[in-house]
Design a protein around this nucleic acid. Structure first.
Length: 241
DNA sequence: GCGACAG
DNA sequence: ATCTTGTCGC
């Protein structure tokens, strides 16, 4: 999968904020839900990092839609250097995620990210940021809130409420993907509308709170990290003995 | 000054 | 996110 480098990543937090403010103007908000009637492939992406080393993994899983069969999985191992700073998640995760996207041979019509889209202090969460760079429709689906106010949605699967910024604008939705379970925070990433985003998230959710594309990406990234920790443990045992 | 704060 | 033990519910 191809993309254009729009800016550098090894920047200071202040420079990162300037980049986000600049990219904000380039978000495309779609108003045509019907445009996704013939979606064939949906991707989910996630990373995993070790507390002790800068080495981490990134995974992209592509699934056929709407049957959600896995059609491609790509992963990379690499350094994750930028620290986690609320509001600057993309600067930590995007560089290694892009390396995984480079390996994709199947072009997904839509990508779901584990994090916010426009439901962000500067309207530039990781889903919007990577949507612009990859030039693809994207959705942000986070496990918790970063920004905005909302009322708790109903307790049944399918119930949702809206997320608002401090001027009463709708910036996302709080969606109950599983009954009696914490909701997820859905927002537009790029080139999509909120109604479609909610619908896609619901159609990608089976028996778990987290929609399948990012749930499986998360699973794989953790399997990779655990596998490598077993190997290094064996090495240390050999060294100790 | 204080609380909130994706992963 | 990661680490980490038991515990509550479907």
């Amino acid at each position: 999968m191809q993309y254009k480098n729009l800016h550098k990543w090894n920047v200071s937090p202040a420079e990162a904020i300037d980049i986000q403010k600049d990219l904000r103007k380039r978000i495309v908000v779609s108003h045509q839900p019907s445009a996704f009637k013939n979606v064939r492939y949906i991707a989910g992406a996630d990373i995993s990092c070790n507390r002790l080393s800068p080495l981490g993994y990134a995974v992209v899983v592509v699934m056929r839609f709407p049957d959600l069969e896995i059609v491609e999985e790509k992963w990379v191992k690499g350094e994750i250097t930028f620290p986690y700073i609320p509001g600057l998640l993309a600067f930590r995760e995007a560089p290694i995620l892009l390396k995984a996207f480079e390996k994709l041979t199947i072009e997904p019509a839509l990508i779901i990210f584990d994090g916010q889209g426009i439901a962000h202090p500067r309207g530039m969460g990781i889903a919007s940021h990577l949507g612009i760079i990859l030039n693809k429709p994207t959705i942000g689906c986070a496990k918790s809130k970063l920004f905005g106010t909302y009322k708790e949605p109903g307790e049944n699967k399918g119930d949702f409420s809206y997320l608002y910024d401090n001027r009463e604008n709708v910036i996302g939705a709080v969606v109950r993907t599983k009954s009696n379970t914490k909701p997820v925070f859905v927002s537009i990433g790029h080139k999509i509308d909120l109604q479609t985003s909610i619908k896609v998230i619901q159609q990608c959710t089976k028996n778990y709170r987290i929609p399948e594309p990012i749930r499986l990406a998360h699973n794989l990234v953790n399997r990779l990290r655990n596998k490598s920790s077993v190997v290094s443990h064996q090495h240390s045992e050999i060294a100790d003995s």
